[in-house]
Design a protein around this nucleic acid. Structure first.
Lengths: 152, 152
DNA sequence: TTCCTATGTTGGAATCATTACAAAGTAATT
DNA sequence: AATTACTTTGTAATGATTCCAACATAGGAA
């Protein structure tokens, strides 16, 4: 389970966002901050079954929706039918495998600048007042390249 | 409804992709190619109720899934709970209103090059064999800026 | 500390988009 | 024109997500 510093950090995050601190919120956020597995609601429920065996799915949905509204977390679809969640501690985007659904975080030096450029350009063109973006890149993960016998 | 040249063009597109040409596929693709309203399955059903009154939702889902697999069409979520579809005739990305869900197409000179750069960089970093990407930018559309009384 | 109230949690029911399936129809090839 | 694999259709099934009402509690006020 999450170590103490993750628990302290996530507690601070909740307070900074003026969210009422409940055990459920705190543990779910700590789970997300310490796992980079892009879990679904079910994955989170299973992962926290020791700590909070009676936590209902509704609570997880409610909590995640709250986090998404506060921009602590982003939603991802990988084509398997349910939504995956990712703690957004540092700016990054996602590469998603079109065969197995595996999601990995990607970033590079200058990514934040590129993001900002895209947002400014979009504001100029569309007239929207931009508040965020999502970028996803699709392809075959290394394992599936081998599994399917494709060659580069 | 779609004019003749759209019907001819979409017929060619179906044949080029070696898709069996059925009235349903042809009319749905022509609808998508001539409307830039990012319709849902229901919107398409309503829009084509004159031409094909007996077309079932299953057919629309089947057809759209086929088009997505062939990369003729992309799926979009705007937060209203159902999936929106967009004919992908020319490269572009989307700006989505976080208040009303309105989706607009955006592009700019050099967008295709930027896309390619992103894909190559992602391949290098992640090891994925890249086949495509989606970019979305979120914010308030001009109407909702006025409606909500926000100022730039 | 204790009380109070707004807010959060729970679990089960309800909803709604999407898929599965089997029967009937049809495009395109021989 | 016959054949066959593929498509359409309607309905049933699925499954993720939301709704709701009762209960619980975090955190501020006294």
């Amino acid at each position: 389970m999450a170590n103490n510093s993750v628990m302290e950090d996530t507690l601070k995050v909740l307070k900074d966002h003026k969210l009422r601190v409940t055990p459920q919120r705190h543990i779910i956020l700590a789970y997300l901050a310490s796992h980079h597995n892009h879990p679904t609601v079910e994955t989170i429920r299973d992962g926290l079954s020791k700590e909070l065996p009676n936590m209902g799915s509704s609570t997880i949905y409610n909590t995640l929706n709250t986090f998404v509204e506060h921009r602590l977390v982003v939603e991802l679809q990988n084509g398997d039918g349910s939504t995956h969640y990712d703690y957004f501690g540092t700016p990054h985007y996602h590469a998603i495998c079109t065969n197995c659904g595996k999601i990995v975080d990607v970033t590079y030096p200058g990514f934040s600048k590129d993001e900002k450029t895209l947002e400014e350009r979009t504001a100029d063109i569309s007239g929207y007042m931009i508040s965020g973006n999502h970028m996803e890149v699709y392809g075959l993960c290394p394992e599936c390249q081998v599994k399917l016998g494709v060659k580069k």
